[in-house]
Design a binder for these strands. Structure first.
Lengths: 216, 216
DNA sequence: GTTAGAATCAACCGTGTGGTTAGACCAACT
DNA sequence: AGTTGGTCTAACCACACGGTTGATTCTAAC
């Protein structure tokens, strides 16, 4: 296993580099991030970035793609565990939300990338997005067919689901500065409680007339 | 009025510079934007940026603040014209939405700034945000007092209102690339129609049980 | 023990950046 | 005509950036 040990070390290095990259990209954005700083935080020489991963662009793509596939995976797991369309959609929302809170770097990156129109992203990332969208679309259509959801364009539901999470996760970081600016801020006991309110409002909003009771 | 003409010219120049700046900041973000390009697009010498407005930072602040105050103004106008809390909240949503669609540069900037945690923004901008938030808070609380809205933390409603618009406006730009990646995309006749669906879902979701009928 | 190749590093390079400056231009007033 | 002060420009600068290179160390296999 000697050879394996070596490549395991290399793999670990690669992971450290990608994590550091995610951190810096999240904090400063693609243009704002410096490969020097990424290297510094990963504790490796700059040339190692190019050796193990690639140039700045490649670094970025790797980070984004890694996150997207993870989200999609979790979403599918969530759906598989749920029974009704409403539960499934709630599961989708929660899966995204939990990942967003657990790994706060990523919503930041996604948000910024959205505002750039995906300028820094390769087609593969869009394929992954499209695939995630297809998943939620299925759920929404199933729910409409079952009469649980009102008739909406699935893409709208998708946008609301994802958007609310990403926006919310990012907004959390403004709290302190908004408070300092005089905003009268929440008596939110926990972040998760606030998130639950969001899920509830969205599902309630999507419920077909007379079906509001189905929403947990 | 000779002197006035001169300063009017200067004012116009300033506006052109700020518009160009908004454009470039929207396309490339704060770090990605170059003062050279801003100057080029504004059709002025680079040094004029520093003369008329200030450094890159100041340029950015001016752009963001200008937009925020405009939003807040429109929101207030919308509220003033509406009667019931539901109508007022719908008006808030529409005001933000219309501005976002009309001046697409700004949602992009705001989104990116959100993901940066307002790193590039001065306290005054946060004061403006807090003030806007206070406005919607009033409406939400009025609606809850009147029994039209379910009990929610106003900040949640605020986030959903703003977030959905900003996210939606930005998502529009992904359409083509997502379509090319195989996403089955909307039969949305018009953008406004999609937006109306969003407003409807949110208001419906916020409506108190039994009050869903009040939503237009 | 030697060797091939993976992994690492310090030093370097060209380019493009934000920002500055010294002065030219020009309209308006004395 | 001369002076002033707002407006504008070309040229410049220091520097940080992304990226590369060539040499060097480490390790595993023969």
């Amino acid at each position: 296993m000697a050879h394996t040990q070596r490549s395991e070390m290399a793999f670990a290095r690669r992971q450290r580099i990608l994590e550091a990259a995610a951190e810096v990209f999240a904090e400063r954005g693609f243009s704002g991030a410096g490969v020097n700083e990424i290297a510094r935080r990963a504790g490796v020489n700059k040339a190692m970035l190019y050796y193990h991963v690639g140039d700045k662009q490649k670094l970025y793509e790797e980070v984004v793609l890694g996150f997207l596939t993870q989200v999609h995976h979790q979403v599918r797991v969530g759906i598989a565990k749920a029974a009704t369309p409403v539960d499934k959609l709630a599961a989708v929302h929660r899966a995204i939300l939990e990942l967003a809170l657990e790994r706060p770097n990523y919503p930041r990156i996604m948000l910024r990338e959205l505002s750039l129109g995906g300028a820094n992203l390769p087609p593969e990332v869009f394929r992954q997005m499209a695939s995630l969208f297809a998943t939620t679309r299925e759920v929404v259509e199933e729910g409409m067919a079952a009469g649980q959801f009102r008739r909406v364009e699935p893409v709208i539901a998708h946008i609301l689901l994802i958007g609310s999470v990403v926006f919310f996760a990012n907004a959390l970081r403004l709290r302190d500065r908004l408070g300092a600016a005089g905003a009268q801020l929440p008596g939110l006991d926990t972040v998760l409680q606030a998130a639950a309110q969001i899920t509830h409002i969205l599902l309630h909003g999507l419920a077909a007339p007379g079906q509001e009771g189905v929403v947990p």
